[in-house]
Simulated assay, not measured.
Amino acid sequence: MLAKILHMSLAAAASGKSWAFGGHSSGGVVVYRCMDHFASLITEPLAAARAISSEGMKWLPAAEGLELSELFTRLAGRPPSMPIAAFSFEGSLMPCDVEGWAQEWAEAAEPPDGTEEDLDQPGSQWTWPMVKACAGSLFANCDSSPPRQLASIQRWLELPEGPRFIYVAGSDASSAN
């Protein structure tokens, strides 16, 4: 997921048009990680380009990985245009966001009741091992002290001429507000 969003975001950045990116719930963690990668592209462009390109070749289909590498060639060492904003729609940040389920899912041998039908949705490529790994990663990121995502947000906000960061939560999300 991260490599796919990076690929799409960098394509938008290379286009010269205004763009933004965002994610909801556990997708917020992907947003925070993308923010880290874009911050690295500003502060250390060549090293970050190599790292992101390598990650893309590892996780994306071959054609998309190659396209991502070619994007960096087109950017020729200059940082990409930054988005007008990064959005997190109740993106997982804190231990309270994953409390009571993420660690349990990471350790469960079988999907909890009711989740099997979600995995069987047409077009879904999710498998239970993928969900377990995602839940474990979410738990580890949110459980660190301070939560890893808060460092990503701080780094983003400290960028020169930094793009906006917008966190959106509903009134019923009181534990995360």
Rank of each mutant, 00 (worst) to 15 (best):
W128N: 08
D120P: 03
G16L: 08
S40C: 09
R33H: 11
E70W: 13
F72Q: 00
S88D: 04
F72E: 00
R50E: 13
S18Y: 06
R74F: 08
G23S: 13
A13R: 04
V31Y: 07
S54M: 09
G123N: 12
E90W: 09
D97T: 01
A13I: 05
P61T: 02
S69P: 04
A14W: 13
Y32A: 06
D36V: 08
K17D: 09
A13N: 03
L41Q: 00
L75F: 12
Q103N: 11
P122A: 04
S81L: 10
L68P: 00
S40P: 03
A11G: 07
H24F: 07
A39E: 02
P80T: 00
F89A: 02
S26D: 04
A109T: 13
A106V: 01
S40V: 00
M8F: 12
E70S: 10
G23C: 06
M8C: 10
E55L: 14
F87I: 00
M94F: 10
I52K: 04
P95V: 01
H37V: 01
D120Y: 10
T115H: 13
W126A: 14
A47K: 14
R33G: 02
G123T: 03
I52C: 00
D113V: 03
L68I: 05
L75H: 11
G16F: 08
S18N: 06
F21W: 15
D118F: 05
W19Q: 00
A14D: 12
P61K: 07
A63F: 03
S54L: 11
H37N: 05
S9R: 02
F21Q: 01
G114Y: 14
D120C: 12
E107F: 01
Y32K: 03
A86N: 08
W126P: 02
L41S: 02
S124H: 10
